[in-house]
Structure formats: structure tokens, C-alpha cells
């Protein structure tokens, strides 16, 4: 397994506390669709950490990582 795969597996994107699907974010952030959208490139793949209540990059990491189910 290469280094990139190992890193991705421990990032927020692979954590069960992290949500970054666009429709979820548009429901979570009131008013987001009025003048923007969660489907834009500028959001990249940021999402919400439900454990720490932070909005952050999917490339973030922390000691509370808990793996999500494999897709």
C-alpha cells in the first residue's frame, strides 16, 4: 500500500465523524444556496466534523479519528 493511500485512510475524509456531501452541507448551512452552493470548486472537499463542531478540509486529521465504513 503506498504512502498516499495510508495518508488518505487517516484523514477526516475517512472518518465516521466527518460529513462533506454537498446536499448535507447545504442543509446544514442556512442560506448557503442563496448566493453560493456546496457544489462549487472553491469548497474543494471540505466538510463538517461532528465530533469537534468544526468546518475543515477533508485532508485534516486528529487523534479522535474513527474509520468510516469502506465504500
Amino acid at each position: 500500500m503506498d504512502e498516499l493511500k495510508l495518508r488518505v485512510q487517516s484523514e477526516c475524509r475517512s472518518c465516521r465523524h466527518f460529513r462533506n456531501d454537498a446536499q448535507y452541507l447545504e442543509a446544514a448551512f442556512a442560506g448557503l444556496t442563496s448566493l453560493s452552493s456546496a457544489f462549487g470548486s472553491v469548497r474543494s472537499d471540505d466538510g463538517i466534523c461532528l465530533r469537534h463542531d468544526r468546518y475543515l478540509s477533508a485532508r485534516s486529521f486528529c487523534s479522535d479519528f474513527s474509520p468510516a465504513a469502506a465504500s
Partner: peptide
């Protein structure tokens, strides 16, 4: 924080 864990959440691979 108020934790709402989604046990069925799947990994979102890089775009």
C-alpha cells in the same frame, strides 16, 4: 461537542 455519529457513513475518496 454534541456528537452525532453516522455509523453508515462511507469514506469519500479524493475528488
Amino acid at each position: 461537542a454534541n456528537v452525532e455519529v453516522h455509523p453508515d457513513r462511507v469514506i469519500s475518496p479524493p475528488l
